[in-house]
């Protein structure tokens, strides 16, 4: 069963890569479309209100069916672009199913929840990231995040199966705790939202720059407006921060049971707090006029970097109470 799990994980990494290539093809194909005019739309002052005064006026792009004369060629090109996008989603779903099977089989093989070591944490967290992405694709149509999500998923899954992989083994006694399970579930959910938020922040910066230059070509033209991406990123973070707060609280209750202290400045604990503080900074920055947009996006990216460093880097570099058996 363990071998099947591993097979499914490897397959998911490969299919994520294929999905990434499909999204990249969508991007590339979209370059064939004519550059789109940036239109400042009066009715969108709602969007404009989200941009600091004095910044470039908020812009939105004409929908694909207005303005430009739709020649036969162009229609064909649009259909091709759309087709690549759909293939991307289809492949992402296939990879997700394989990934899900990998995680479930791993749990069945170990006869416990599959959260006992780095390999299992990373694969589970990535499952949450892609799962959240797919839910939001169906619910909110955020296909535009696919390129970065599948890239991250392919890298993380590839890293997990090649570097982090360990054979199935039971848990060390310190992990036998309900609070541990609650802690991990919360961490995995927060990971999903932080990653989507952070990736959106990266896209925000790219799109924002293009908007300032007034040149929106190809894939960039297909992205939502910078202001809309910004709002999306904010929502992801606003959801994730309370969950992350809860994650830390649950973790410290577990620590109280396991080691008789809530907080011991263990490297893992310290970095969870650092991550939390950075995201608190993000929320404050957003709520302070003038720190919206690019600067907030940079904080979000720093936050994501600390998150991943805490998640993987600390375990590999520093030894503490959290360095689980078998990494």
């Amino acid at each position: 069963m363990s071998e099947y799990s591993q097979l499914a994980m490897v397959a998911s990494a490969v299919v994520y890569l294929l999905a990434f290539m499909a999204y990249a093809a969508e991007w590339a194909a979209a370059r064939a479309l004519p550059s789109q005019r940036v239109v400042a739309d009066r009715r969108r002052s709602r969007v404009r209100a989200a941009v600091p005064a004095g910044a470039a006026p908020a812009a939105d792009v004409d929908g694909p069916d207005t303005g430009t004369p739709a020649s036969e060629d162009l229609t064909a090109a649009r259909i091709r672009v759309d087709m690549f996008g759909r293939i991307g989603i289809g492949l992402t779903m296939v990879a997700f199913v394989s990934h899900l099977a990998g995680v479930v089989l791993r749990g069945l093989a170990a006869q416990r929840l599959p959260w006992g070591n780095m390999y299992e944490f990373v694969t589970s967290a990535m499952l949450a990231v892609v799962g959240a992405y797919l839910v939001l694709v169906l619910w909110r149509g955020i296909r535009w995040l696919g390129l970065v999500v599948t890239l991250l998923a392919a890298i993380a899954q590839g890293f997990a199966v090649t570097v982090l992989f360990v054979e199935v083994a039971p848990l060390v006694p310190a992990l036998h705790s309900v609070w541990f399970v609650i802690h991990i579930v919360a961490a995995v959910i927060a990971a999903g939202a932080f990653n989507l938020g952070g990736l959106a922040s990266i896209l925000y910066l790219v799109r924002d720059r293009a908007e300032r230059k007034g040149e929106l070509r190809g894939y960039l033209a297909k992205l939502p407006s910078a202001a809309a991406i910004d709002t999306f990123a904010y929502r992801m973070h606003a959801f994730a921060v309370p969950v992350w707060t809860f994650t830390i609280a649950a973790g410290s209750i577990w620590a109280q049971y396991a080691w008789g202290r809530f907080w011991g400045w263990d490297p893992k604990e310290t970095w969870s707090l650092i991550t939390w503080v950075v995201y608190a900074g993000y929320l404050h920055a957003r709520l302070t006029a003038g720190w919206k947009g690019a600067r907030a996006a940079w904080i979000a990216i720093v936050g994501l970097a600390t998150f991943w460093f805490n998640f993987v880097g600390i375990n590999l570099l520093v030894s503490g109470l959290h360095s689980y058996a078998g990494v």
Partner: peptide
């Protein structure tokens, strides 16, 4: 002021780092 609060928040994050890298 909010700006100071922000600064202090980031300072706190920064100040916590060495403790996780240097033995305590």
């Amino acid at each position: 002021s909010m700006r100071t609060a922000l600064l202090l928040l980031f300072l706190l994050a920064l100040a916590a780092i060495p403790g996780s890298l240097v033995p305590q």
